[in-house]
Design a protein around this nucleic acid. Structure first.
Lengths: 336, 336
DNA sequence: ACTTTTATGGGAAGCGCTTCACATCACCAG
DNA sequence: CTGGTGATGTGAAGCGCTTCCCATAAAAGT
């Protein structure tokens, strides 16, 4: 494990000063001939700049970071890795890190990455109600990706038009003849998700549907726990369709339905939200709201790179939802 | 965007030298009283060490890196993010990056991470036939995770006992009464995957099964392309079961079967390899070989941390496969 | 012919932190 | 009262690179 060659070594090898070598290596100055000689010597010695020293010297790390609130579910996981991949495809160094659902850690990582030199930040699935990143965005180009985000004038954002997604679902179900709807949405103890709740209610009311909201713990946590309540709610309200605000819930519901002999979609229609990869594979295929993954990634990456390269000011892009009708929805039993 | 406070600023604030502050902040030296004063001042100024400067000064970055050959498929993606998560859960800074299937990029990233200061490396899904990482491992603690790996004495490794997995599958199918087997394995133009090929053949021969091997392009690339060949091979050999060396292929086969009216598992048994998350969701559930995800992650992380903290030498852990029998296998038609 | 530009190369000062080596000083044993 | 010991604090030398700014030489302008 011999020591890595340094700039000085290269300089010695060609008989020039480190300064000259530094310039030459980056092609910024020096005669063509000198540059060639330096290049050759560097090559011969197997020299590679030490990015840490460089970062310390010029104040920027040359690395972009993707911070994901949690990579626990497949959708966010795919998003996060796709972001990294897209960045890398554009020849940027990119790193991913994960707060694993912990708000404190999220904040710490954000500080770490931003105040401490990531040249740019892509943050996904952060808690939108704790916009610490808004502050960070003032000093580092940052693009936030997520549901409706708190107002954050200095950060760019890619937001999902959830309300439009809800409308699509409600329209679809209404068109099929459903009149009573059960909606599963995540319980967020800290900050009730008012926007989602009211959006859904409004969408339903506009189409004359009855809607019952049910808050359930995170999907997958205990797949069976919410089921009892769902079943109860189903009976109580006579709902013929369940709209799950996350595909994860939808899978749980499907599983439970299968076990209890309820046929989907004949007896019960189920709609998800997110379009995780599994949605297309599971049984008859989950009807769900889909966000164009590629568009999200492209938009976010482009925004960040523009901000970086052209000092573009913050902007907001809204992603439109698309309803993917697969096999878990059909007309309600009564309408047959 | 005011400048970040430096060590010097803290030193000035408490009227001590930067050296003292540095020690005090890390609790290495100094009287308790001094330490407290320094802490307080640092707190008050909002001081946080600059990890870059620290890294330059003491030669290590304080960050571990996970390098994934490709996060394109869900299995590796999950593995990679789980590794990061596990590391973070143990209070290490961890970053993930992705070579996106490009061998050159893989090599470049490896150099970047290793020679240029990641304190430790977890590499997954690298091309096992290009053990550049073996060289890297000589200077940086490294744990490789993957299929049979080239001999790499200086790297620790977590390897999947593929041969045992093949045996499980063949046993299962043989027990069900299958006699002719079609095996789909990935084509690797550069380095024919002899080990897998011979392992499968041997396993089959030992149980008196006939096996036809079919090399197919990466799963998902063009879902329909290989199907023709699969169908042809099925007819030609009269195979009653398809063993896919990756769940991805299995999904393609299932899809194709459904389209062409073949019933699984009544007409055709299908077995996968990997147990991606989707396997449990798809139709009747894919029978597949599963690796204990958690065990893999725990083992790898523990190995790395041991190497880091206790200077443990390189070691190799073998992960045993488990056959998960779900709904895509049954007795062959003739045996009913 | 002489002054201006225009290349090239180098000296040296950092970037913010760690750490070695040394200076102090209080304190206790002899 | 002196030498020894350990605990604290500090000066200064880097870590490897970038970059400001000056020196010099060559090319160009008048």
């Amino acid at each position: 494990m011999t020591k890595r060659p340094t700039l000085q070594d290269v300089a010695d090898a060609v008989g020039l000063s480190p300064a000259t070598v530094s310039y030459a290596l980056r092609g910024q100055r020096g005669s063509a001939e000198t540059r060639a000689r330096v290049q050759a010597a560097a090559e011969a010695l197997g020299y590679q700049v030490d990015p840490i020293a460089r970062a310390l010297a010029n104040g920027r790390s040359g690395t972009l970071a993707v911070l994901c609130g949690s990579t626990r579910d497949t959708w966010h996981r795919a998003l996060a890795t796709d972001l990294v991949r897209a960045l890398i495809a554009r020849d940027r160094r990119a790193l991913l890190t994960d707060a694993d659902g912990d708000a404190d850690r999220e904040r710490a990582l954000l500080d770490l990455l931003a105040e401490q030199r990531a040249d740019g930040l892509l943050v996904a699935a952060l808690d939108p109600f704790a916009p610490h990143w808004e502050e960070v965005a003032r000093s580092t180009p940052l693009v936030a990706i997520g549901d409706r985000l708190a107002e954050a004038p200095s950060a760019s954002a890619v937001v999902f038009d959830n309300a439009a997604g809800f409308a699509l679902v409600v329209d679809h179900l209404a068109a099929l003849g459903h009149r009573r709807l059960l909606v599963l949405l995540p319980e967020r103890p800290s900050t009730p998700d008012r926007p989602a709740e009211t959006s859904v209610r409004e969408a339903a009311r506009a189409r004359g549907l009855t809607v019952e909201l049910l808050r359930v713990p995170p999907a997958g946590a205990d797949p069976d726990a919410p089921i009892e309540r769902v079943a109860a709610a189903l009976v109580r309200t006579g709902a013929t369709a369940v709209f799950c605000l996350s595909d994860g819930y939808a899978f749980d519901v499907l599983r439970a339905a299968r076990r209890s002999g309820l046929r989907v979609p004949d007896d019960l229609s189920v709609v998800g939200f997110e379009d995780v990869e599994e949605a297309d594979l599971v049984g008859p295929g989950l009807t769900t709201v889909s966000w164009d993954h590629e568009q999200v990634v492209e938009t976010a990456v482009t925004m960040l790179l523009d901000a970086l390269d052209h000092h573009t000011g913050p902007s907001v892009a809204v992603i439109a939802p698309r309803l993917v009708v697969r096999g878990t929805t059909s007309r309600p039993p009564a309408a047959r």
